[in-house]
Design a protein around this nucleic acid. Structure first.
Lengths: 133, 133
DNA sequence: ATATAAATAAGAACTATTACTGATTTCGAC
DNA sequence: GTCGAAATCAGTAATAGTTCTTATTTATAT
């Protein structure tokens, strides 16, 4: 892997994600950073998001609909994703370590990490009278 | 929701997924079905995959890299995804019901389902001497 | 057998992401 | 400080995956 060099753009991407409690997409990161870096390019944002995710300095969240989301919160936590409005909420369940130990026994490889997403209707959507589907 | 009409293409998509133990992408489904349906269209495959997934007759697997995968196996199970070769393996951990109960308490909505993906190096890739990254 | 609503094939359009190119920045050695 | 190599950048072109549109076909009710 190539030697890593400081870049203020990468720093900004990371800093931006760490100050957010929502879970922005690459495009949101791009639009917001443009205010401080009027000519940062979308490619730069994507490259650094992938890089940071590989280094484990941020997390990538695949919701199963549309674009990827990113998360600068490294505290162990999980996500609840509303099937109607697609908002991502943080939730915390405690048994994940035990879970990974159990999974390791049944696994065809060495487990390094685990992504745990819960799906359902969020209270907001439920109160608007939406049903599942 | 619209009244549903029988279609042999949809039947074929579903049947195909039920006979596979791997986790094909839309494109794989398309290529394979073309042997029996020389002019089925890719749009039809996508539409029916989404439809079947919404109806809960198949599952959609988001790996976080590239295309979505689909799974006709409705038995409760989880997935191990190799970070190097991206192969998806089935694994089975038992505590998932307890997990969902626990998550429900911390959740901003009603949890209907949960996707649990484990990531790491599969044995094949590990034996080829690859390290993480 | 006919009507009609739903599903299809084919391909254009669109969105999210990656790859390429030549210019700029970082950073260690002098 | 300045030189040079390597990393990074902005800008843009290209690609992958998916959805949409239109004319046509098919399934089902009458």
């Amino acid at each position: 892997m190539p030697a890593r060099k400081y870049s203020r753009q990468r720093e900004a991407v990371k800093h931006f994600l760490m100050t957010r409690r929502d879970h922005p997409t690459a495009d949101t990161v791009y639009s917001c950073l443009r205010e401080d870096f009027p000519n940062i390019s979308l490619g730069t944002v994507y490259r650094n998001l992938s890089l940071l995710a590989e280094l484990g300095e941020i997390h990538r969240i695949s919701t199963g609909s549309g674009a990827e989301h990113f998360d600068g919160n490294l505290e162990p936590h999980q996500h609840f994703i509303c099937s109607r409005c697609h908002t991502i909420y943080d939730i915390r369940v405690d048994q994940v370590d035990t879970l990974m130990d159990a999974a390791q026994k049944a696994s065809p490889g060495s487990i390094e990490s685990c992504h745990l997403n819960f799906y359902g209707l969020c209270d907001q959507c439920a109160s608007k009278g939406f049903n599942e589907n």
